[in-house]
Design a protein around this nucleic acid. Structure first.
Lengths: 206, 206, 206, 206
DNA sequence: GATGAATGAGCTTTCATTCAT
DNA sequence: TATGAATGAAAGCTCATTCAT
């Protein structure tokens, strides 16, 4: 079992690194921690990824982005769900974007975040916006989603931390409609629990 | 400025620490870096602040907050200005709240941020909001301001990074009015540079 | 009150140093500890004693030695009392000789100990011993007294730690008589508490 | 002796630590000193022993004790030999017990010493002693042996430092017999150098 | 290729001590 | 003279990383 083991170990290292980097940030995470989580020697990290930074790069390169699948008028609803309700257990319970801010002292991480925000959020919203300063308004809406994610999980302000989809969706829809200049609707198929009011943070903590 | 001046040295250490912690985060900043910036021996940090954490605590304890001074209907405008236009040179060019997110791997820093956001932003906005879920809407608006600060300075999305007060104010006012359920006006005396369009990040790099 | 204050501070520093050096040894004692005990700035130690070692030297130079006062046949009894029953509170509850062993990594301390043992114990006993190898037997008896002090206070073996004067005196007398080749008697005036059986270590802790 | 040999390096670190701790005491010994003696990086000490204290614990845990092997009536003779004549080169030329007193500022070291003295010396002698206060007399005899070791190697009083086995044995035998209440004989096979008169401290200095 | 022993730079912190005022 | 600000060396320890086997 030589070949498959290598790939399996590599994958487990990535997984452990994803969690550690998300939860504790780049600096506070040591390669020994990651290797220890997997139960292998830290040297493997250098063999497989070259360096700690190489591992970080690989970890932050594969953020899942499937927001564009679905009806455009539900895009904002999908984004909101992604930011606050999706199951980011593998990222320590926070949206990868939010988690990555913890490592934003490093220019590399900043560039990742920038690329992610621009490519995934701003551009998609910009396509929907009408009028003069479409990009600015798309960015303002993106900023809101990011801010909601941060206040919800990092800062954990009381109302947002406990809010369910049904509490947030109306506000988000109306503001999004106003900013984009076109009506935005709720996500009718929101993981089958449209107006769920259970604790959205369940399962995010170890 | 005499050489052997305890208070002066203390103040310079605080200043240097503020900048380093903001720019690079807690972990990536060493006490030698800070002392080196000031040109004194690192030992003084322990004499004056007890420990690195003690210094961090002191640095993050004195975030200026004078948002409540002024007419209530201009509160949001003042907040916006504070987040994106105020001169945060001493914090590396970013709003302290945004900079502190860089150290949010540490629970202590998180608590500082939470306290700051809740005490300074949410509570003030909550007093203005009308209707049922006032706190939630206050938090949503706070989230937006924080998100704007982040996208502008950390992520540096193109449109926001270059936007001037005149570009942002209308959008912010209308959304804020909608969220709070009452009309919010712009800050008529915005530091005398109402429609400034210069690069808001200027002066942040040493 | 300039002159007297200086002398008073000097004396208090000596006293604090005596206690610290005895209890914790030279290395584990810092000049700041000593100065802190007295409540003055550590700089005074260097002004008054030149260096930490200078202070140590002065502290270890003035061990009280009044063993020679009294009848010769009670010399051993006086020595035993000095080693195990005398009130060495100012030395942390141990005989200075025993306490100083804690600093015996330093050649200087060793020389102090050597001088003290030879001058105060061996020489006095040697004058009493009869026969060929008088010095050796005097040293052997000195060794015993030192050993008793160590086992009693440092090692704290159960029986010795709780033994009173009445328990030890007979054994010491008979062995001393045998080793010295002449009868040695008990100390009739032993601080007026000849056969005391109270805890001899009382009052040694702060 | 291969270069990359964990066990060998570990053993050499232990050996160097034993010597340093014995000669200079715990506080005056730095982990860099020890590693330097061996010629390896100080990091290995933490890899192999966890901490400086962990190393100290391991060093002081394995004091050799084979005093009980042999005829009971020669026990005291074996103890004397152990304390003053045995080759303690690996402990800097002093009996481990005596050397450890140098670190007796630390409670841990004290407990080691206490355990060693009680388990190895007092208990064995107590089994031989007859009469009422057997333990006290056993401790008194132990104290003597310890005292002899100290005066001989630490204090280095002239007669004891130069004494050979033949000089000490008679005195020790007679006192031991008196204290224990039974005849104790000399060790007839004392490492084949019964009446050696060479300097017993030879070979102790590096 | 894989294992793990070894490295050296750097960390926070405490030390004895000096020097300016 | 006396106060205390300032210093530099060194402590124990952790880090990412390399190199020998």
């Amino acid at each position: 079992m030589p070949k498959r083991d290598r790939e399996a170990t590599r994958a487990r290292l990535l997984e452990a690194a994803r969690l550690r980097f998300a939860r504790e940030g780049y600096d506070a995470t040591s390669v020994r921690d990651i290797a220890g989580d997997v139960g292998v020697d830290a040297t493997l990290i250098f063999r497989y990824f070259g360096s700690k930074k190489g591992l970080f790069d690989e970890v932050t390169a594969d953020i899942p982005r499937d927001l564009l699948d679905g009806p455009p008028e539900e895009l904002v609803a999908r984004m909101l769900e992604s930011v606050v309700f999706a199951d980011w257990t593998t990222y320590g319970g926070e949206h990868p974007l939010v988690a990555m801010l913890r490592s934003s002292a490093h220019e590399e991480a900043r560039q990742r975040i920038r690329k992610e925000v621009c490519d995934t959020y701003v551009r998609a919203l910009e396509d929907l916006a009408r009028g003069e300063d479409a990009q600015l308004r798309a960015e303002l809406l993106s900023a809101w989603l990011v801010g909601i994610g941060i206040l919800r999980s990092v800062v954990a302000t009381p109302a947002l931390a406990q809010a369910g989809a049904g509490d947030l969706a109306p506000h988000v829809q109306s503001v999004a409609s106003a900013l984009l200049g076109r009506p935005m609707s709720g996500n009718s198929g929101m993981s089958g629990q449209d107006l769920a009011e259970d604790d959205p943070r369940s399962g995010s903590e170890g």
